[in-house]
Structure formats: C-alpha cells, structure tokens
C-alpha cells in the first residue's frame, strides 16, 4: 500500500476515467449480485420454509400441515402475501384430518453467553406447552447445550401447563424454572444442575412470550381452529411459489 504522501505527488488522473471506472464496476457488481439474488431466492425461501416446517412439526406432536397467522392486540389474521405485516407471527399445526394440534411461536431470552432463541408448541386443548426447539444457541458446549440434549430437561415440555387466568389477561401460574429435581407443579421447569442460567433463560423466554401472546391468541383461537388447513399436496407445492 503506498503512503498518502506518495499518492499526493503522483500526477492526478483526470476525474473522467475515475468516475467511468467506478460506474462500470458498480454496474457490473450490481448485475452480478442481482443475478445471484434472483437465482437463489426461490431455493433459499424453500430451504427456510422446510426448516420452519420441520421445527413446527417437531414442537407440535402430530402436526402434518401448517398455516401462518399474525396475532395482534385485537385480532388473529391468516398471513397472506399482501396482508398486514405487523404483529406476532405464529405457526398453526394441523393433523391429517385438519384438526388443530397446536400453535407454535418464537420466544427468546438472554442465556449464559448470548440470546437463546427457541420455538415452542402450544396446545390449546390441554392449555399446555407440548415441545420446544432451540433455534439459535451460543451457550457453552457441554454445559449450556444440555437444554437440547438432556432428556430429563426436555421431558419438562411434554406437557408444561400454561393456563390463562380467569380474567384472561395473564397466565394463571407463571412458568418458572426451579432448582433441579424440585419440580412439583405442572407449570414448573426442572433446571439442569450445572446449567442453571441456561435453564432459567428457557423458562424466562417461555413465560415472557406466553404472558404476552396467549391473552391475545386465546380469544380468537377459533379463527385458527376453523381456518381451512392447507391440504398436504398444497403444502409440498408451495415451495415452488
């Protein structure tokens, strides 16, 4: 790299060629980037759809089809390409017969090293959380990542109660993480000893999300229940857009 002093004494190139070069390069790179973007866009969308679908079906046992909804303070609406974009995105999972099996939503809280992002499946019939999947994790390997691998911890989410209170504006019992081995109530999460902070983060994330989402979601749950679920054929088609 030449020093600025050396640049200063060089005869200056006229501005014309400089601008022409920059314009040319900019156009070339713009062309290449847009080309790649257009070529990969459908594939990436399909990949993402498949990843979300796999996660949703994992946290909602028995679901084979999915449909997306937006939850706002006042309503629950199905996601359409030109519909509203504000609100909390949830994924509803249906079984073969089109019965609603559960609703999946995202939650996140600060863990030991960084944010833990997870997806959880909520079963409206038993008013409980049926499964969680960690989407993004930067916890200490061997300790914090036990929230994925530890069988006892994962068993907390076979049926974790998240019932709305009589007033319908908050949970009847806050979801809390308790010390390892002391779980007594269905709304408590048994922590992993040695990974307390990560376990607490999961509890915190679920509680925060459920407290906020369920009071808005439950009054309109019939919208989701009665929405025509996509047939399986449609589901596998949709990736091609």
């Amino acid at each position: 790299m030449s020093t600025p002093e050396a640049q200063a004494i060089q005869p200056s190139t006229p501005t014309g060629p400089m601008i022409r070069t920059l314009m040319g390069i900019a156009m070339l790179s713009g062309f290449l980037v847009v080309l790649t973007y257009q070529l990969t866009k459908p594939i990436i969308a399909e990949n993402q759809r498949r990843a979300i679908e796999a996660a949703v079906f994992q946290v909602i046992p028995g679901a084979v089809a999915r449909r997306d909804f937006l939850v706002t303070e006042s309503a629950v609406t199905a996601v359409t390409p030109d519909g509203p974009t504000e609100g909390v995105l949830v994924y509803a999972g249906y079984d073969q017969q089109g019965n609603l099996k559960g609703v999946a939503a995202k939650a996140g809280a600060q863990g030991y090293a960084d944010m833990i992002h997870l997806l959880y499946g909520y079963d409206a019939d038993c008013e409980c959380i049926r499964g969680i999947k960690v989407l993004k994790l930067a916890e200490t390997p061997g300790l914090g990542d036990k929230i994925i691998t530890d069988a006892n911890f994962v068993a907390n989410f076979d049926a974790l109660e998240a019932k709305l209170s009589a007033g319908g504006d908050k949970l009847a019992n806050e979801i809390v993480t308790v010390k390892a081995g002391t779980k007594q109530n269905p709304w408590e999460i048994d922590a992993i000893s040695g990974a307390t902070i990560s376990s607490q983060a999961v509890g915190k994330a679920l509680n925060q999300s459920a407290q906020q989402l369920l009071p808005q979601l439950m009054p309109h749950i019939d919208v989701i229940r009665n929405a025509p679920p996509p047939s399986e054929a449609e589901t596998s088609d949709s990736g091609t857009q």
Binding site: A45, D68, L89, K204, E234
Partner: peptide, 22 residues
Amino acid sequence: MQPAPLKHHKVTTMATETLSFI
C-alpha cells in the same frame, strides 16, 4: 398455501435488552 412471507415481521416476543446490558 401462501409461501413463507418474505416481509419483515416484528418479533415482539423478544426480550428488550437494556442499554446497560448491551
């Protein structure tokens, strides 16, 4: 079924991080 929406959704479930924490 509609394709996965490409528009940006506000994920309001996320914990808001305080400035001192950041």
